[in-house]
Nucleic acid binder design. Structure first.
Lengths: 105, 105
DNA sequence: TGCCTATTTGGCTAAATTGCCAATTGATCT
DNA sequence: AGATCAATTGGCAATTTAGCCAAATAGGCA
């Protein structure tokens, strides 16, 4: 794998990786239903605000979410709706895995 | 976030996370063109066989790939084709990011 | 101005990840 | 059986990640 190819996959892996954490995946799922402020997300998640804020920073840096400051609050939303396709596919993987475990394949 | 919800997102995040590494993403991309043995993948990637083997174990455990032993070789293939949708979406995220950087949004 | 709320940043520790080498296992071939 | 190739596993050091607390920053309001 040459340098250019490696860089290409590194850039793409970083985006996927940013969703590869339960809390961040929860955030993406929640934002798929509309924008949310940090305080709302923090309440739902039940972790320290600073922790949630850092997770949001990861998602923002990867380009999956964007933020908008309004008053004293910061609202986050998805930049691209297609990330929801991920969920459907993940379900397929889970289903296939269960089928295999049951010896149906 | 209650226990059940957390577990749900943990299971899904584990699948996504397994693709969140340049080498493993490369493997998924390569397998989208057909099954490959460990030795072929190792040649392409240019890392130690043991490293590649461990990456394949991660992907296998998450259910994204399956293995089949034939003779002295082990062939890997995708279990579910939809993982390719990930690539399209990742491209969209990258494009949106570039647009934003250029001040077009 | 001073207080309160919302959010981010710094710092620190614990845990997880990665990649290499060495050793092991398993199949093939002579 | 012995040699060889393919792949996995164990072990270890270096790096990265996660989450909490404390501190800093910023807006809104009395």
């Amino acid at each position: 794998m040459n340098r250019k190819t490696r860089e290409k996959f590194e850039a793409r892996a970083r985006i996927i990786k940013s969703m590869g954490h339960p809390t961040r995946l929860f955030i993406v799922d929640e934002l798929s239903r509309g924008e949310r402020c940090v305080c709302e997300l923090t309440d739902m998640i039940g972790a320290d605000v600073s922790t949630v804020s850092k997770h949001l920073t990861v998602l923002r840096h990867s380009g999956i979410v964007q933020d908008e400051k309004r008053g004293s609050q910061v609202f986050y939303s998805l930049t691209v709706p297609c990330v929801l396709n991920f969920f459907d596919c993940v379900e397929s993987v889970l289903k296939a895995r269960i089928k295999k475990q049951m010896g149906m394949i």
